[in-house]
């Protein structure tokens, strides 16, 4: 297993390098950040000044070389827009996003798996049809529209929860989080639900399909013959079998929820990384975009690694050497 993990990490260095090149060239091709950072009435002299200040007057390969040299020493450059190290900027936004992503995931798990089990155990029943139809809505209605509707209903009309922003934060075990204060939880509710709806639907469908596939299998029949209770059959044997695909999808989804909660964060003005990346792209803030995508790539690599390790724990047939 150790060899597997080391090999995986070495591959990731290559991926990171490729990502940085693509982003660098891509943003260079789009335009010049100086044009966006300058006011409309900036003079040519000011423009030249800004370009030189940002180090954009050098040819692209030289700029990339400088970036690479610094990156190897752990310096990914400072944001053009905010003039603070891009990694600091990303890390400062990370707690907000992580708490949002985990809350969304918890909501999805706590509701999704039981609902999927219920539906899968009674296929064709009214309950099953209701749950499946509900999940279709969760799937197919665009995320931003769901968000706006949540705001319209629960903030504007009913006035139950705030429409946007992050509330007061407190600290739990030294972590700065909204979950520590009532105000924070209040603010977190809508965005977390908005972000969870898609995963929730996905989980319902995955669980339901898994249950329907597993129930007719021989080992369930044997378990029944052996006299195991239905609760134990479903709760232990079925659940363990269907968990492998769920964990795969969940791993990927967790990554994308953390990295690209852009829509939800924008609509709810949530000061997280998703909002940062979209703002940075609009400002052509290259150091932040590059650093961000590198962090995200690293995160995906790590999540996949964890998922692979989890497989081997859940399913004794899986050997890690085989996957690599």
């Amino acid at each position: 297993m150790l060899v597997f993990i080391i090999r995986r990490l070495m591959q990731s260095a290559l991926v990171l390098f490729a990502v940085s090149v693509v982003v660098f060239v891509g943003i260079y091709a789009i335009g010049n950040p100086a044009d966006i950072l300058l006011p409309d009435d900036a003079t040519e002299q000011e423009r030249d000044h800004a370009i030189a200040n940002l180090g954009l007057d050098k040819p692209l390969p030289v700029q990339y070389g400088i970036f690479l040299g610094n990156a190897v020493q752990g310096d990914l450059g400072s944001s053009f827009v905010f003039n603070i190290p891009s990694i600091d900027l990303i890390l400062s936004r990370m707690p907000a996003t992580l708490e949002l992503a985990f809350c969304a995931l918890v909501v999805a798990l706590v509701l999704g798996i039981p609902l999927g089990l219920l539906a899968g155990l009674r296929p064709g029943s009214l309950l099953d049809r209701t749950i499946v139809t509900g999940s279709i809505l969760g799937f197919s209605l665009p995320n931003f529209w769901q968000g706006l509707m949540l705001i319209m209903i629960f903030s504007v009309t009913l006035g139950w929860v705030p429409s946007s922003g992050r509330g007061e934060t407190g600290s739990i075990f030294g972590l700065e989080t909204s979950l520590a204060t009532w105000d924070g939880i209040h603010h977190l509710l809508l965005p977390a639900i908005n972000l969870s709806l898609f995963k929730l639907s996905l989980l319902i469908r995955l669980t339901r399909a898994g249950v329907r596939e597993t129930m007719p299998l021989d080992f369930i029949t044997f378990a029944r013959a052996k006299g195991l209770s239905e609760t134990r059959i479903v709760g232990v044997h079925v659940l363990k079998t269907i968990l492998v695909p769920i964990i795969t999808v969940l791993g990927m989804e967790l990554g994308s929820v953390i990295a690209f909660a852009t829509v939800t964060e924008t609509i709810f003005a949530w000061p997280g990384m998703g909002k940062l990346i979209i703002d940075s792209i609009n400002h052509l803030d290259r150091p932040v975009v590059v650093a961000y995508l590198m962090v995200v790539t690293l995160m995906f690599i790590l999540i996949n690694l964890v998922v692979d390790v989890l497989y081997s724990i859940l399913d004794p047939r899986v050997r890690l050497q085989g996957i690599a």
Binding site: L148, S164, G165, I267, A269
Partner: peptide, 15 residues
């Protein structure tokens, strides 16, 4: 609040 509808909603909800 950079998102337009969200800014309006914040006003309407009194935030």
């Amino acid at each position: 609040i950079s998102n337009d509808p969200a800014r309006v909603a914040a006003l309407l909800s009194g935030a």
